[in-house]
Every structure is written in C-alpha cells, then in structure tokens.
Nucleic acid binder design. Sequence first.
DNA 1: CATGAATGAGTGTTCATTCAT
DNA 2: GATGAATGAACACTCATTCAT
Lengths: 180, 180, 180, 180
Amino acid sequence: MKTDPSNLIEVSLSLFRSKGYRRTSMADIGRASGLLKGSIYHHFPNKERLLIEVIQHVISLFEDGVFAEARRTELSEKVRLDGMVDAVESYYIQHRVCALVHLWPDALQESAEAREMIQKFFRDWRDLLAGLLEPRYGPAEALRLATDALARIEGAVIWLQIVGEESALRQCSEQVRGLL
Amino acid sequence: MKTDPSNLIEVSLSLFRSKGYRRTSMADIGRASGLLKGSIYHHFPNKERLLIEVIQHVISLFEDGVFAEARRTELSEKVRLDGMVDAVESYYIQHRVCALVHLWPDALQESAEAREMIQKFFRDWRDLLAGLLEPRYGPAEALRLATDALARIEGAVIWLQIVGEESALRQCSEQVRGLL
Amino acid sequence: MKTDPSNLIEVSLSLFRSKGYRRTSMADIGRASGLLKGSIYHHFPNKERLLIEVIQHVISLFEDGVFAEARRTELSEKVRLDGMVDAVESYYIQHRVCALVHLWPDALQESAEAREMIQKFFRDWRDLLAGLLEPRYGPAEALRLATDALARIEGAVIWLQIVGEESALRQCSEQVRGLL
Amino acid sequence: MKTDPSNLIEVSLSLFRSKGYRRTSMADIGRASGLLKGSIYHHFPNKERLLIEVIQHVISLFEDGVFAEARRTELSEKVRLDGMVDAVESYYIQHRVCALVHLWPDALQESAEAREMIQKFFRDWRDLLAGLLEPRYGPAEALRLATDALARIEGAVIWLQIVGEESALRQCSEQVRGLL
DNA sequence: CATGAATGAGTGTTCATTCAT
DNA sequence: GATGAATGAACACTCATTCAT
C-alpha cells in the first residue's frame, strides 16, 4: 500500500482549491486519498508543511506548463509570449481559481515560508514576462506592462470565479498577446 | 454600556479583512469590541448573519463613496469616471484588500445570500461603469471595457496585497481614467 | 401593561407540556406571553420557582376539576367515582400528557420542593380514591385497588402519549368506574 | 486504551436513566467512561446517534431478557406469560425507571428515528403479549387485555419511580399473571 | 414594571496532532 | 508504513440571570 506523497499533494491541492486550506481537514485529505488521517503524518510532519508542498507543487506546474513556454529562447519573443498566455488561459479556464491567490490569506497567517514562496512566484512571473517585453519596450515600460498584464490576468480569473464569465479572461489574454 | 451594532460590524469587517471570516472567532470579535462572545448574539443571531451585514456594509460604503461619484448625472461622463476611479484608488490604497474578494470563498461555502450579494455587487459595478463608457464606445464595447477595467482594478489590488507594490494600482487607475 | 402572573404560569405550563422544562427557555416563555425574558424576573425570582408554581397550578386544576368531584360527600361513592373518572378521562384526552409525570425528572433534579409536591399529589389522589372504595372493599384492599387504578390511568396516558391510541385510556376509565 | 463502544452505551444508558438525555452532557459521559468529551466522537458521530444506540441497546436487553421468555413456543402460554412478567418485574424493581418512557420526550423532540424505535418497541411488546392471550380470549379481547396490561405495568413503574412503592408493581404483575 | 444589553458558564462538535499497536 | 483511539484546545451557539435605564 505504498502511498505516493505526490498523490497526497495533488489531492490536497484539489481540496484546497475547492474548500480552502482551513476548511479542509486532515481527515478530508485522508479520505480523498484512501488513507486515514493519522497516516498523513508519515509523509508530512504537519499541515503547514503540506501547505508549503502544495504551493511548491503549483509553482512547479507553472514552471513546467507555463513558464517553460516563455523560456524557449530559441523562439521569438512573440511566440513565447503567445505560448505562455495560451497555457495560462487554458489552465485557468480549467481550474477557475488561482490556487496561490486563494491560498494567500492562509499562507500569510500560517507560514512565513509559504508567504514568501507565493510572493516570489508572482515576482518571478512578472520578471519573466517583462523579459519578453523588454526588447520592444525597454526595461522600465516592460516592467510596467508586465505587472499590468499579470494584474489583468489575475483580475480576470477572479471575475471568472465570482461572476462566472469566461469572456473577461479570454479578452484579457487577447490583449496581452497583442503586446507583441 | 450600549453597544452600537454598526460598531460591531466595523470591528468585524476589520478582523475579516485581516484574518478572514473563518479564522475570526466570535471571541475575537468580542475581544475587539469589548464584549464577551455570548453578547454578540444579542445583536446578530449567528455568524453568518454577521457576515451578511458586513458585506452589506462594504457595499454601502462603495455605494456612498464610489458609486455615488459615478451617478452624478449632472456631470460629464469623464468627470464621473475620474471621480469613481479616484475614490476606488484611494480606498484600496488605504485598505490594501478588496474585502468582498477576500470574503468570497467563505461566502461561497457558507451562505447563499452572501454569495449572491457579492456577485450582484460586481455586476452592478460593471454595469455602472459600462454606462459611463457607452456614449463613447457603444453598448457592446463599453461592456467589454468595463469588465476589463474592473478585472484590472481587482487584479491590481491583489498585486498590492501580495507583492506590496502600489504602483500597479496607480497605473491601472491611470489607464482606466484614460478610457474617457 | 400589567402582566398577570397567572397568565405566565399558564403559558409556561403549556410550553413545559410540549417541550419539557429544560428545553423551554425563559426567552420562550417571554415570547409566548408577550413579555421579554428580563421581565419574567419581576414575577418569579428564578426558573425553579416558576416550575414550582406551574406544578402548584396543575395541582389546583386537579383539585378543582377532578378531586372536587370526589369530595362531594352529599353524593354516593359511585357517583363521585364516576365524576372523578370522567373528569380525568376528558382532561387527559385533551392534553395527552400528564404534566406532573412529564415534569418529574426535572423536579427530581432541580428542586426538592417540586419533588415533594408531585409525590404528595399522587399520594393524595390515591388516598382520595381509596376513601371512595373503602366502604365496599375495606381499607387494605381499597388502598391496593386505588393504587392500581392510578397506575393504570397513568400508564394509559403514557400509552396515549407514545403510541397515540386513546382506547387504552377509555377502557381503563371504564374498568375503574366498574370498581363501584 | 481501547474503549469498547458498548461500554460507552451502557455508561450513557445509566446516565440517561438518572439524569435524562438533555441533562447528560457529552462531558458527563466522558467523565463516567474515562474519556474526554471530544473522544466520544470517535465512536459516535453525534449525541443523537448515541441516543439511538442506547435505545437500541435497551430494546435488545428486552428482546433477550423479557421477550425471549414469551417466545419459547415449546412451552405453554401460561408459562411463557409468567416468565415474561417475572423478567419485567425484576428488571423494573432493579432499575426503577422505564428508560424508554424516560427518554420519550427527548426522542420526540430530537430524533424521528428514536421516536419510531420507541413506538415500535411498545407496539411489538403489546402484540407479543396479545399473542399469548389470544388462544384463551380471542383476538379482539386479547389485544384489549394486552394493552391494558402494558399500561398497568408502565403506570406501576411510574408509581415506583415517583412514590417509591414497589407494591404497585408487584400486584400489577400478579394480576397480569392471573390473566392465564 | 418593563426593557434588553451584558454576563459567564455551559452545550455539542471539530480538528490538528500524538502514539501504542 | 498504516491504523485509529485519544487528546485538548478551539469553535459557534445557548441560556438563566443581573441590572442600568
């Protein structure tokens, strides 16, 4: 009955996304992963660590699925930007929540480590995006535009989450693609 | 020893903003308002009702402080848009969190009434903004632009909250003002 | 706004009968009598006293409505027994609960005074009944028969309460009438 | 440190008998069974379920100790009736309360399931008794006599409980035995 | 007298965590 | 590694009682 810790993380991510960190009990995670709650402690020393690993997992997913597109330096900036935007758009259309924004208040209250990971994630993303825009806009303007693009995307995801309309995200993606 | 229920609401809003609904206990609210937890039930029948009244309070604040600007039909659309954006900008610079976005996950899980109030708030805001843009852009484009503007603002507030930079919100406000 | 304490007692009796003593809050009693809970304390020093007065009230009702029949010494024992049984039968058919049996566990736990009142009530009733039977059966047998008759009646009321059948009470009444 | 749930049920039954369901707190049950109140929820999901299991336990005790006597079809009705009455008499002399009558008001208010179990218990008992009387009295009269016998027994237990005299129960048992 | 806000002890229930098996 | 009973602190909520107005 070898339990794969990464399965536990995925199950937790899914629960955290739908119910939030606080509302998800260790028993919930156990139930959803076919374990009993006591057994989770064989894989993670406490719930905070699980939160951190879930955050790390989300960041990895973005690294692999979203940022990787933007890092293919053999391609033009335009192609890389489009690839990144496409990946982000379909990711959020599928999940309807930005897990890291969702987890932010809990991270802020419960774990300095989690807090810094999330902050770093957004700053890294912004810098990555700014890097793509820099050749065309210069460093200062690129940073401005990148920050604005990210805020727009995150805002559009919130709109999707609360109001339920996908159109905001689609149009926002279109506009970001139009930057190059 | 008369407790003003509206004081209780403001105290709760403040706690909800910083710790979230779930993490704020009735004892916390009591402590912050000089009451014992049991006494709060003299003013609100349960925590959910308190949540709803807090949401209503936030909506009223927006009605009075933000939307009112946009409703002064004796003024030009440009002036009204600027007034609204100024009000929003300074409100969020001060509070650094959009309480209704912050409360959304809890509202979603705990109270259909709260959920609908928040959804309605954002739709109303969007419609109000679209109304200002309509003379210049026509109904369809106005709606698009209004939705995008709101998403941008909310995204910028999130950026402010997580990354701590006010610049995103300031520039976003500038851009929204530039729509007219 | 003169409040009649006897109205408070009747309201309380009605609530105690349907919800029990513990489950009936002072606020319930206030609500049902058009008072606020604080005001009840102008008429009764505490809930225990209210319990005692309710018990006293029930005993008075029996004195006037049931025992009085049995005390009309100008009539024959047979007529007096029939009158008492008729009164009891219609009383319980109407109320479906013996309030004093219902209140017994609370009286036992909360108030020595209430406890003794209830015990005395049942002993008095038994003695009264025995008095009617004595001319025919002699003291010892009369006491036996009276105790049995009362147990039968109370048991039939319980049967009415739990199972919902009135027939047990009707037949029991018939049998008790047949004693003379 | 294994806690036997059936021990918890017996402890609860004992407390429910003496203090009633409502007055018995989970902390009381914990204390009496060497557990903390929170730990009880490892064995029962809530207090209502505990009530139901306690009721089921009482019914089982009757099934095994009382009804079993009456079901030994290899014996004559007379012997079976006597066996049942003996068992009932000694059971109530020992416990002085009919737990199911005692729990009825709480069952009525708090749990439809508990309510129906108690009602069914009394109807089953009556039918069982009627079955014994039927050969001699015919179906209609047997039912009447069985209902009356049960009411008498329950009334005698109440008399024992409130007035404290065992004689009522003993004589009532004698009379029921005399039916065959 | 009536009010209703305040109290403080209590209720049932949840949950992260520990640990003997 | 897995189990699940036990813990103990926390939670939302209730209620008899007090008392200033």
